[in-house]
Design a protein around this nucleic acid. Sequence first.
DNA 1: CGATCGTTTGAGGTTCCTCAACAAGTGTGG
DNA 2: CCACACTTGTTGAGGAACCTCAAACGATCG
Lengths: 232, 232
Amino acid sequence: MRRITTYGRSQPIYGEYDPAEQWYCIISGAALNYVVLADGRRRIVDFLLPGDFFGFSSRHRHHFGAAALVDGTTVASYPRRGVEAMADGDPRMARQIREIAFKRISRSQARLLALGRVTSLGKVGSFLTEMAQRSSEQPAEMVDLPMSRYDIADYLALSVETVSRAFSELKRCGAIRFRGMHRIQLIDPKLLEDGFDRPGLPKPIAARRNGSFQNAGDRRRHGLVVEPMPTD
Amino acid sequence: MRRITTYGRSQPIYGEYDPAEQWYCIISGAALNYVVLADGRRRIVDFLLPGDFFGFSSRHRHHFGAAALVDGTTVASYPRRGVEAMADGDPRMARQIREIAFKRISRSQARLLALGRVTSLGKVGSFLTEMAQRSSEQPAEMVDLPMSRYDIADYLALSVETVSRAFSELKRCGAIRFRGMHRIQLIDPKLLEDGFDRPGLPKPIAARRNGSFQNAGDRRRHGLVVEPMPTD
DNA sequence: CGATCGTTTGAGGTTCCTCAACAAGTGTGG
DNA sequence: CCACACTTGTTGAGGAACCTCAAACGATCG
């Protein structure tokens, strides 16, 4: 039913616009979903870690490519038709697939927020937070980054140089510490998660920690007037 | 089974962190998914148009809020448990739900690309393209924008001023034409979709239309070496 | 050891954000 | 009907952040 394949670094798992006939799950290693834009730039749509399912598509072809990040990445693949047939006969299976899909929706949407952040430190900070949460169950403060700075840059829609500078800056202000190039210790996770958001301020050494909202006028300006739920 | 509710402008459909006990579908009008960040800013996670399902969550609580965009937005809501039970007994239903979920994954990921675009004209251009595609089956060149410039700004992670300037600029260079404040005619959809991507260039009047890739060196730099698929 | 890749740091220019003012559209009450 | 307040949209000026180009350093591998 399922087939295990091992890939080398940068080796494609499937290409952009390939027919979407398999679903996949990372067993070990890491991979990424990418797109190459018309002008040759690359965007990384998602990093894929052990336990992540991918390769779903609403149409019959993929919209993105997938490639391994590290040598020896092992991936399980399941024929789409077979799984769908199994799901048809086994409601628990179907639920599990739904659950996986919903999780993925949540994650993409959370990522939208990260991408929407204003400053490079904010983006890199939330990237580190995301990786820390995904790579282990309990909030670990040690993060392995199997990808290069280039990958991170394409993931966050920043230039490599800006990513590198952001890491240096985070180190300088004591939010992180390097344990080797691809191993980072999070000293102040809270700061990484919601600090560094506002540009053009004194300098993001001390983070705002108020957590309160703006005044009512600002909320109304944004169309977020809090009114009672409709009673019916 | 399903319940129809009508909402006024800016009226919440459900709040952030509310228990996720219903699934919803827009019947008419428009709505949005939003988040209010710690510093009081708002991010719009998604615009919801007729036919769009929303309110899925992998956990028992929503991560985002939902609110109506226009007066008289009608929304169908379905009790989650009921639908899940139905899906358990009806494989076709289950498939349909999967299909909806997969579509939504595709859309969030497509949106990641739009947010990752470099320039404000690129972002606004792909926003218009997205709205045009979503609001009708065949590629329409007339787009209704039920949301304010503020909403668009929060959707694209730009300031209102920049959004407004981008519209003006697009009008100036003949890519769009105004048919009222919230009704826009797309003159050059191709330009909107892939033009305006590179900052710091002559000025994005003539779009690059080559569609070819960079040289091999650049592809390798990005870890996208094209190698044969594993034969096994 | 040389070559290449990955990473970091510097300098200059462009874009976008903030602050500000103004114009246009909408609704309310006199 | 108009005055007024308020919201929404547009435009200008100045400064901050990021991108590009460039160069240097470190690591890895043959």
